[in-house]
């Protein structure tokens, strides 16, 4: 490889990784919002994936092709436990219990020092998340959601998003769809977490908290959830932006917050407002 290209890739490797991982996170947010729910636990699910993956690699030395699916499975189990009781209640309860989940896990990571390294976190995680793998998974995710979105399931999901009561009357099995969406979304977030811990070499207990959850939400709200591509584009914009606009530094969180406000009030369909065409 030419030296300049090597240096160039080296310089932006982390950013390019982050773009892909954030794209997956946006997709996981899309998956919950597509059935009209709000989860503030995507960061927590990501954390479970990150810790599971890192621990399996560091302690058991499992091969990465095995670590990756296991890292998606672990958050799915947690989503099942959290989602089961709360999804029957109004959407606010899911939102709050997912915030609580993030906090409970943080306390757990801090206290289970023998396993998670406590506040010191886990370091020396080998870098195994290849660029092509991240983007392949992202591509598969987008294509799969696209296909689902155009199918009968997608129509049911859209009906739920527009008016849950009506969808229920029309025979959509609401709890099943909601729980299904939450589980799938937690798996994608878990994958993203595992990929990020295997490209970062260090993870700590405070990285998957409320701030990250809000950032993930802003990906989806900026892009919109009309199509699965939209939130990914939202993620790319919001991830690349701080690098482009270094002077914005101090105002980064102000900016993220305003994006959410503006998106909810004025752009309910995001900056990419197109919607999926139905299959004939």
């Amino acid at each position: 490889m030419a030296e300049w290209l090597d240096d160039f890739l080296f310089t932006y490797e982390n950013l390019v990784h982050a773009l892909g991982v954030h794209g997956l996170l946006a997709l996981s947010m899309y998956c919950v919002m597509a059935v009209g729910q709000l989860s503030l636990g995507q960061a927590a699910f990501m954390g479970i994936g990150a810790y599971t993956g890192a621990l399996l690699t560091l302690n058991l030395g499992l091969p990465f092709w095995l670590v990756l699916p296991l890292s998606a499975l672990a958050p799915a189990l947690v989503a099942l436990v959290i989602g089961g009781p709360t999804l029957r209640l109004s959407g606010v309860y899911l939102a709050i219990s997912t915030i609580a989940l993030g906090e409970v896990l943080r306390v757990l990571y801090i206290n289970a020092e023998w396993l998670t390294g406590g506040a010191l976190g886990l370091s020396g995680i080998p870098r195994k998340a290849d660029l092509w793998l991240i983007y392949l998974l992202l591509l598969i995710g987008v294509v799969a959601f696209w296909a689902v979105g155009r199918s009968k399931i997608g129509r049911a999901m859209e009906a739920m998003r527009e008016d849950e009561a009506v969808a229920g009357v029309m025979g959509v099995n609401l709890p099943r769809y909601k729980l299904g969406a939450l589980i799938v979304s937690s798996m994608i977030a878990g994958l993203a977490g595992c990929l990020s811990s295997h490209s970062n070499s260090f993870i700590g207990p405070n990285e998957y908290g409320f701030e990250m959850a809000v950032t993930i939400l802003s990906f989806a709200l900026l892009g919109g959830i009309g199509t699965p591509v939209a939130p990914v584009i939202g993620a790319i914009i919001l991830t690349a932006l701080p690098e482009v606009l270094r002077p914005l530094q101090d105002f980064r969180l102000v900016f993220n917050g305003l994006i959410i406000v503006i998106a909810v009030l004025f752009l309910p369909r995001g900056v990419i407002p197109f919607r999926l065409r139905r299959a004939p």
Binding site: R106, I110, N111, A119, P205, N206
Partner: peptide
């Protein structure tokens, strides 16, 4: 403080 690396270390 048990939740940040500096204090724990």
């Amino acid at each position: 403080a048990n939740d940040d690396a500096f204090s724990k270390s």
